[in-house]
Simulated assay, not measured.
Amino acid sequence: MIDTQHFRPVSYSRTTLTELMIPSYANFGGKIHGGILLSLMDKAAYACASKHAGNYCVTVTVEGVHFLQPVEVGELVSLKASVNYVGNTSLMVGIRVIAENVKTRMIKHTNTSYFTMVAKGDDDRPTPVPGLILEKREDARRFLEAIKRRELSKRYQTELSNSKTILQVEDELHLLQQERCKVAF
């Protein structure tokens, strides 16, 4: 028997949030605002992370938000969230968003995003989270991808903050020649 106090399976906190897209969620073009969808994704990430952690969780980063297809008024949007990775106090929650037209039965994948959440204790400080039991090959693949995603993010942040790689505008102006901009200084 696995100690669920210190480890929880991916299936324990898997969460699906479904909501009807109403006219007040739409922009002037009749499509659902991206901000509405981001808010729903944040709710799904919170529900999933908090269930796994057994504590309040806060959003630290959101990555991979690419709106692949528009969401229409009247569609049912389902946000499928699962914990893909856990650190000491953090969790990465993957969210797959699908929209369903109930009349035509057409289902479309609108985006996949990754939310990094941190568990907070009663003292409002980061607190340890249970480990993750990978029940399927898919769970292991997602965990490994999350490790790669974290490595790439750390490398990117290091490069940007490294004083040796800070762009010197004058040295890099030639890069702008092929871009849709005009330098006016």
Rank of each mutant, 00 (worst) to 15 (best):
138 E>L: 01
13 S>Y: 03
19 E>I: 11
87 G>Y: 05
137 R>A: 15
114 Y>T: 05
32 I>R: 00
160 L>I: 11
117 M>I: 10
12 Y>T: 05
63 E>Y: 02
118 V>D: 05
88 N>Y: 12
21 M>D: 00
157 Q>E: 14
180 R>V: 12
29 G>L: 12
183 V>G: 05
64 G>D: 00
169 V>D: 10
172 E>R: 11
20 L>R: 03
167 L>D: 10
108 K>P: 07
161 S>Q: 13
133 I>Y: 06
152 L>I: 12
170 E>C: 07
36 I>G: 01
8 R>M: 07
165 T>E: 10
84 N>T: 11
171 D>G: 06
84 N>L: 08
27 N>S: 01
117 M>Q: 13
16 T>D: 10
146 A>E: 04
139 D>S: 04
140 A>P: 00
176 L>G: 03
177 Q>T: 13
15 T>P: 06
131 G>S: 06
2 I>S: 12
110 T>W: 02
120 K>Y: 10
93 V>D: 00
114 Y>N: 04
185 F>A: 12
180 R>L: 13
98 I>Y: 05
157 Q>R: 14
178 Q>F: 11
145 E>S: 11
16 T>A: 07
159 E>L: 14
70 P>H: 00
34 G>Y: 00
115 F>G: 01
58 V>S: 01
45 A>K: 05
16 T>F: 04
53 A>Y: 07
99 A>Q: 02
183 V>F: 14
169 V>C: 07
108 K>H: 05
36 I>S: 03
105 R>Q: 15
149 R>M: 09
123 D>T: 00
116 T>L: 02
44 A>E: 00
115 F>A: 03
43 K>H: 10
95 I>D: 01
172 E>T: 12
10 V>E: 10
149 R>A: 04
48 C>Y: 07
36 I>D: 01
173 L>P: 05
140 A>G: 00
83 V>T: 14
100 E>M: 07
183 V>C: 12
107 I>D: 02
21 M>Q: 01
182 K>T: 13
122 D>F: 10
30 G>R: 06
126 P>R: 03
24 S>D: 14
136 K>G: 04
101 N>P: 08
88 N>E: 14
60 V>R: 12
51 K>R: 15
96 R>G: 11
28 F>L: 12
138 E>D: 09
33 H>I: 03
155 R>C: 06
34 G>R: 04
181 C>P: 02
42 D>Y: 04
64 G>V: 01
166 I>S: 09
111 N>D: 14
103 K>T: 15
9 P>T: 07
97 V>F: 02
76 L>E: 13
146 A>V: 03
34 G>N: 02
140 A>D: 08
65 V>F: 15
61 T>D: 05
183 V>L: 15
3 D>Q: 07
62 V>W: 01
84 N>M: 09
126 P>I: 08
172 E>G: 07
120 K>C: 10
29 G>I: 09
90 S>V: 03
16 T>P: 02
154 K>E: 15
20 L>H: 06
113 S>H: 02
128 P>G: 08
134 L>G: 04
62 V>M: 08
67 F>G: 10
